[in-house]
Design a protein around this nucleic acid. Structure first.
Length: 490
RNA sequence: GGUCCCAUCGUCUAGUGGUCAGGACAUCAGGUUUUCAUCCUGAAAACAGGGGUUCGAUUCCCCUUGGGACUGCCA
């Protein structure tokens, strides 16, 4: 039975790498008719942030990744479901204490009363002397009596894992194959902090055993501490789960994907107007591929195709250009109604008075930009002239050397087109095209010499949808008004 | 510094001993077109280096180099 889990900490935003891990876990579970559950790793009281859990739940919900068990919403309220709970680590403290006692009794762990200050100083000196920073086991040699007395007198302490330093450990990673470690350089890791909370290491081993997680899918940054975890599983007499360590997501400079170099929070991309399916499609392909040349996949297809043995070992650079391409291609597939309803909030947000325009105006205007949108947040910049009049025209906009638009030609084009538009009433794109193309012929100019200055006058932009489209949207009155205004200015 | 992981076009990747090293994004050129975008066509672009093994290595092994992660009472 495949049981995968996502185990995020409520420490802030939802990282794009966490989304990928969630996706892989979810896909694998669904494909194998297994279970996917959510466990909250809130053992660091200092770093826990209010609202972070809701953010995790909301993001997962947005992505359509619904856990079968664990922490989830029930009627809009955060709650838990499943047989193996609680799924919130802060509610499992007694469980960890029960298990750590076993370790203490067996001599696989010991109390340590060293102060953070002493530890810091020790570490500093070790680094200075080019020695690996490691705990010096000062407290390992305390007698039972000394330990008892210290505890009774209320001295703060942590509990450390006693690493059997004479072992060499080998394990088979599902993605990387054989990985070998020499335990002699492993540090006596803290398992229980002085506040009584477990560290990740203890919590991972106890919980993933109790919750029957298999395989454990997590980021590559955990690979170096895996031997400690295996030692712990062994010390408890638990069966060691299978591990799949996922390659890292990277910045452009190949360092671990981080906030400093762009957006790493899923919510940032949602805000910018990236489509869920595009983000999922893109993110899944960072480190995995189906082995065919198909690139566009929906979630159902991903469930069918996904397998861990096609996951890469090397890290993958997060390439925004490719995301934009995925997103643009998904946007172009949207129905126009869907497209309109998606971009409305962005237009409203930009302050455009959408309500002042007749029904159908939005629809028509939107149609002209759908194929050029990469993400919704750029829509206001693409459509502003449908809701505002261009204020100024400078020569470099109306004139165009390459199109051979001189000031005289621009004037003539605008004058003639105004005259023409006065005389017609069919403002469909098709008719506009027909009459304007004829006009060009009649006055002996080239298409670009007439259409470029018109389009520029109408939109105030160097790049925009075509003249016929724009006039058709703007209508007779507004189009003529803008063309005349431009004529006055130049 | 130490340990571990990784290494095919700029980027995401296919490839599992014999391929003209394939695709996609990005780039460039051409076409469609009033501009941009879309769409179509095409081009340029990679096996990090050195040793082995082998009739033959991108592919297997070793070394070097490069990159990364970890090295917390964070996860």
């Amino acid at each position: 039975m495949i049981r995968t889990r996502l185990a995020p900490s409520p420490t802030g935003y939802f990282h794009i790498g966490t989304l990928r891990t969630a996706l892989y876990c979810y896909l694998l579970a669904k494909k194998n008719k297994g279970k996917f559950f959510l466990r909250l790793e809130d053992t660091d009281q200092k770093r826990s942030i209010d609202g972070a859990l809701e953010n995790i739940l909301n993001t997962l919900d947005w992505a359509g990744i619904n856990p079968d068990e664990g922490v989830m919403y029930k009627n809009g309220v955060v709650s838990e479901a499943g047989e193996m709970g609680p799924y919130t680590q802060s509610k499992r403290i007694p469980i960890y204490h029960k298990y750590i006692k076993q370790l203490l009794d067996k001599g696989n762990a010991y109390h340590c009363f060293c102060s953070p200050e002493r530890l810091a100083k020790m570490r500093e000196e070790q680094i200075k002397n080019k020695r690996p920073p490691m705990y010096d086991r000062k407290c390992l040699h305390l007698s039972e009596d000394e330990v008892r007395k210290a505890i009774e007198s209320g001295e703060p302490y942590v509990i450390r894992q006693k690493i059997p330093r004479d072992t060499v450990l080998e394990f088979e990673d599902l993605i990387r194959g054989k990985v070998k470690f020499d335990c002699s350089i492993l540090d006596d890791q803290v398992l229980v902090k002085s506040d009584g909370f477990p560290t990740y290491h203890l919590a991972h081993v106890v919980d993933d055993h109790l919750m029957k997680t298999n395989p454990v899918i997590r980021g590559e940054e955990w690979l170096p501490s895996t031997p400690k975890h295996i030692l712990l599983f062994n010390a408890f007499g638990f069966k060691v789960p299978e591990y799949a360590h996922l390659p890292l997501l990277l910045n452009k400079d190949k360092s671990k994907l981080s906030k400093r170099q762009g957006d790493v929070a899923v919510e940032d991309y949602i805000k910018k107007g990236y489509l869920r399916d595009a983000i999922i499609n893109f993110v899944v392909f960072l480190g995995w591929n189906p082995g065919t040349e198909q690139e566009i996949f929906n979630i159902e297809e991903l469930i069918d195709e996904f397998s861990l043995d096609r996951v890469h070992k090397g890290g993958a650079v997060f390439d925004i250009d490719k995301l934009n391409w995925f997103n643009g291609s998904y946007i172009r597939k949207l129905s126009i109604e869907e497209f309109v309803s998606r971009i409305k909030p962005y237009l409203l947000d930009a302050g455009f008075p959408l309500d002042d325009y007749p029904d159908g105006y939005m629809l028509k205007a939107s149609k002209t930009v759908q194929e050029r949108v990469k993400y919704f947040a750029e829509v206001p910049d693409l459509m502003w002239f449908y809701f505002n009049t261009p204020k100024e025209y400078d020569g470099s906009l109306i004139l165009n050397e390459r199109m051979k638009v001189t000031i005289d030609i621009a004037k003539k084009a605008l004058e003639e087109s105004v005259k023409l538009l006065y005389g017609i009433n069919d403002f469909s794109e098709e008719n506009l095209k027909e009459v304007l193309v004829n006009l060009v012929k009649d006055i002996g100019l080239k298409n670009g010499q007439v259409f470029w200055p018109m389009r520029a006058a109408l939109t105030g932009e160097k790049f925009s949808p075509g003249v016929f489209e724009v006039i058709s949207v703007l209508g007779k009155e507004e189009s003529i008004k803008r063309l005349k205004k431009c004529l006055e200015i130049i």
